[in-house]
């Protein structure tokens, strides 16, 4: 995010400088773009590209025991099935748990009511 902010700031500045230069050049002699604008544009481009690459990092996963595990590969995910299932094995879920459990469809209010009744029974 910081890379994007710096890069966009530099690009805007370079763009405005180029605009001013052309405006001035149209009244006087026409000259080529100054070197510092060119350098600023290239630096801004490199910063934004670098920022976009660092922004695709894998997010760490949380195991059932509340431990944070990170994958071996920092940016991309391995495509071979044997490698791809390793993280699931560490975390303790299978690839189909997302379909089996359907967290989005769980009725939380009903579950809480059930839990509250269970607590009452325990007392």
């Amino acid at each position: 995010m910081l890379f994007y902010a710096i890069g966009i700031l530099l690009l805007t500045h370079a763009g405005y400088s180029a605009f001013e230069h052309h405006k001035l050049a149209s009244h006087t002699i026409h000259s080529a773009l100054p070197l510092d604008i060119i350098v600023e544009t290239i630096v801004a481009t490199v910063i934004i590209v670098f920022g976009s690459i660092t922004s695709i990092k894998n997010s760490p996963a949380l195991t059932l025991d509340n431990e944070v595990v990170t994958m071996d590969s920092q940016y991309l995910k391995p495509i071979r099935a044997t490698d791809a299932s390793q993280l699931d094995q560490i975390v303790g879920v299978s690839e189909y748990d997302r379909f089996d459990n359907r967290i989005e469809f769980v009725d939380v209010i009903a579950k809480r009511r059930e839990y509250a009744e269970w607590i009452k029974e325990q007392e």
């Binding site: 890069g7 370079a14 763009g15 773009l33 604008i37 544009t41 290239i42 801004a44 481009t45």
Partner: peptide, 11 residues
């Protein structure tokens, strides 16, 4: 997109 902006600035 950024390369497009850059080549626009460099005219």
């Amino acid at each position: 997109l950024v390369l497009g902006i850059a080549s626009g600035i460099l005219t």
